[in-house]
């Protein structure tokens, strides 16, 4: 069963300063239970793809369609996409001073519950719920008391993204360079977190520059994105090859 089908997607950056086409006819289908990795040179459009899927307002779709669990994804607002089960761990998570992390996590969780007509969780139950997730990621409870990402180190921000992944338990997790900036131990812990999340009904799209993460979270497919489209697809050995030879081989 497919979780997401991206068909011939074209997108432009549409801001006051810029109007450039970045995605130039991208095709990708991800089925339940699969892990896909996307690698590719800097500036090739990987983050653009992830933000387009999440619904960032700076991008305009000029062609193509995206079917997400039977729904037309591009018709949905960003919050509807999230509440329908799409999750993006950002390459650069923003800091939001004055918004408490625990409160934020609970509100995010309950938004999804409400959207799906399920009962919202009260604070005490949520404490127990979140504690279990913290333990998986070996995060200290202090992180809950702080403001959302404010003053977090680079690696701490990435961990906090994965904490959100575990909290929201989406059907598709797009992880944009979550491994960048993690120390060796943190990479292992985060990988364990990702593996804890995985099951046969959901899927993972890993965007990464390094083979190392893929040792922990084994991909079924590895794609090379370059110039706004996927130019090569292989299995996990492709990542090894790329690591050795660089993008010259594709």
């Amino acid at each position: 069963m497919s979780i997401i089908e991206i068909k011939n997607l074209e997108a432009v950056i549409d801001t006051e300063e810029s109007n450039t086409q970045i995605l130039k006819g991208l095709n990708l289908t991800i089925n339940a239970g699969e892990v896909h990795a996307i690698m590719g040179p800097n500036g090739s459009g990987k983050s653009t793809l992830s933000k387009v899927l999440a619904g960032h307002p700076d991008y305009r779709i000029t062609k193509g369609e995206v079917i997400f669990q039977g729904k037309n994804l591009l018709d949905l607002d960003p919050d509807e996409r999230a509440n329908s089960g799409l999750f993006l761990a950002f390459q650069y998570p923003v800091e939001i001073p004055g918004v408490n992390n625990l409160n934020f996590l609970r509100m995010a969780y309950n938004s999804k519950m409400k959207f799906n007509n399920q009962e919202e969780m009260d604070p005490l139950d949520f404490d127990d719920f979140i504690e279990e997730k913290l333990n998986i990621l070996k995060m200290k409870p202090e992180f809950l008391e702080r403001n959302l990402n404010e003053g977090f180190s680079g690696g701490e921000k990435k961990k906090n993204e994965i904490l959100q992944l575990l909290t929201l338990n989406p059907s598709l997790a797009i992880l944009d360079e979550t491994d960048s900036g993690l120390d060796i131990d943190a990479l292992r812990v985060v990988s364990e977190g990702i593996n804890a999340y995985r099951n046969k009904n959901n899927a993972v799209l890993l965007i990464t520059h390094y083979q190392r993460l893929l040792d922990y979270v084994e991909p079924d497919y590895v794609h090379v994105l370059s110039g706004g489209k996927i130019i090569k697809t292989g299995d996990k050995t492709l990542a090894l090859e790329l690591e050795k030879e660089g993008y010259a081989i594709v």
Binding site: A54, G55, H56, P57, D77, P78, D79, R81, A82, N83, L88, F90, P93, V94, I96, F104, M107, A108, S111, K112, F115, Q164, L168
Partner: peptide, 11 residues
């Protein structure tokens, strides 16, 4: 910041 919250399900 607005987009970040929306991407986490906040309307």
């Amino acid at each position: 910041e607005l987009f970040y919250l929306q991407s986490r399900g906040f309307n």
